[in-house]
C-alpha cells in the first residue's frame, strides 16, 4: 500500500519518518474503514477459495454430484441445487472463476483504455481525433449485440471461461479510454503541469510524475467498473444461452436458479449464496477503490 504514489512528494517525508511502517499501516487502516473492510472481504474470499479448493473436490460443483434440492444442513452447509451440485463447492469454484473473468477482461480493458486515453489526450491532434473518433463510434453500439454474434459463432466446445473473458475484453476499452482522455484533458491545463512544462520536464516525465499519480483513483475506479462490466457481461451471455453454461460461474448459477423458479419453490439458498458471493467480490473491489481514493489524497488523509 505504501508505494501508492502521492501527488506532492514533499508530503511524504514527515509521514514516514515516524515509528515502524507496519505500525503506521495498521494505524492508518483503522482510520480508513472502507479500505480495511474491502481488504478483509477480499482476504476472506481468497482464504475461502484456497482452503475450499484444497478440501473440496471440484466435481461437486457440477451436476449430478450429490443428492439434489437439499436445504443447508450439516452435510451440505450451503445446501444443494436442483441439478445435484453442492453449493459449497459451487461457491468455492464459482467465486474463483467469476473473479478470473473479471480480472482478465477488466484488467486488460482498463490497461488498454488508460494507455489510449493518455496518448489521445496528451498528444492531441490527429492521434487524438483518431482514438477519440473510434472510441466514440464503437461506444454507442450495444456491446452485448456484438458479443452475442461472436459467442454464437463459436463451436460450443470451445466456449470456456477464457474465451468468455476474451469476448468481453474486445469491447471493454472504449469506456476507460474516453474517461481517461477527458480527465487528462482537464488535468493538463492545471498549473502544476504548466509549471513542470516550463521547468523543462519532458512529456514522459510529466505523465509519470504529475498526471498519473493524480489519476490513480480514476484508474482504479475504471478497473472496478470494467470488472463489473465483465462479470455482468458473462452473466447476460448466460441469460441468452451462450457462454460456458456448465461451469459454476456465479452468474450461471443465479440464472439457472431463476429458470427453475427457485424462490417460488422455496429453494432460497440456491440463488442467494451466489448473489452474496457476487456482491462480496464486486463490493470488496468497490470498497478498496473508495479506500484508495482517500489514501492517494494527502489532504483527506491528514484531515482524518
Amino acid at each position: 500500500m505504501a508505494n501508492i504514489s502521492l501527488p506532492q512528494p514533499q508530503a511524504q517525508a514527515p509521514v514516514f519518518s515516524q515509528p515502524g511502517r507496519l505500525t503506521l499501516l495498521f494505524r492508518y487502516l483503522r482510520r480508513n474503514m472502507s479500505l480495511t473492510i474491502g481488504l478483509l472481504i477480499m482476504l476472506f474470499l481468497i482464504v475461502f477459495t484456497i482452503v475450499g479448493m484444497l478440501t473440496i473436490e471440484s466435481e461437486n460443483a457440477y451436476a449430478l454430484a450429490v443428492s439434489s434440492k437439499q436445504p443447508p444442513s450439516a452435510e451440505f452447509p450451503l445446501g444443494t441445487d436442483f441439478f445435484g451440485r453442492d453449493m459449497l463447492a459451487v461457491m468455492v469454484y464459482g467465486t474463483w472463476q467469476t473473479a478470473l473473468i473479471g480480472i482478465i477482461a477488466g484488467g486488460a480493458g482498463t490497461l488498454v483504455g488508460v494507455l489510449l486515453g493518455f496518448i489521445s489526450a496528451y498528444f492531441g491532434g490527429i492521434i487524438d481525433a483518431a482514438i477519440k473518433g473510434i472510441s466514440q463510434i464503437l461506444m454507442p453500439i450495444p456491446v452485448f449485440l456484438i458479443q452475442i454474434v461472436i459467442a454464437g459463432s463459436l463451436d460450443k466446445r470451445d466456449v470456456t471461461i477464457y474465451t468468455m473473458a476474451f469476448i468481453v475484453l474486445i469491447l471493454a476499452w472504449m469506456g476507460p479510454t474516453l474517461v481517461m482522455r477527458s480527465q487528462v484533458l482537464s488535468m493538463k491545463e492545471r498549473p502544476y503541469v504548466a509549471v513542470a512544462k516550463l521547468s523543462g520536464v519532458g512529456d514522459i516525465g510529466i505523465i509519470f510524475t504529475e498526471i498519473l499519480p493524480n489519476l490513480l483513483p480514476f484508474i482504479v475506479a475504471q478497473f472496478v467498473t470494467q470488472v463489473f462490466a465483465a462479470v455482468f457481461a458473462s452473466f447476460y451471455l448466460a441469460i441468452v444461452g451462450l457462454g460456458p453454461l456448465r461451469e459454476p460461474l456465479l452468474g450461471n448459477i443465479i440464472w439457472a436458479a431463476m429458470g427453475q423458479g427457485a424462490f417460488f419453490n422455496g429453494w432460497w439458498w440456491w440463488p442467494v449464496f451466489p448473489a452474496v458471493g457476487l456482491a462480496l467480490i464486486l463490493g470488496s473491489l468497490a470498497l478498496i477503490n473508495m479506500g484508495l481514493d482517500e489514501l492517494s489524497n494527502p489532504r483527506v488523509r491528514r484531515s482524518e
Binding site: 454464437g152 460450443k156 441468452v240 444461452g241 451462450l242 460456458p244 453454461l245
Partner: peptide, 11 residues
C-alpha cells in the same frame, strides 16, 4: 462424450 449445451437462439 464431449458434451456441452447450446441454449442459444440459433438452436
Amino acid at each position: 462424450f464431449d458434451a456441452t449445451i447450446n441454449f442459444g437462439d440459433d438452436s
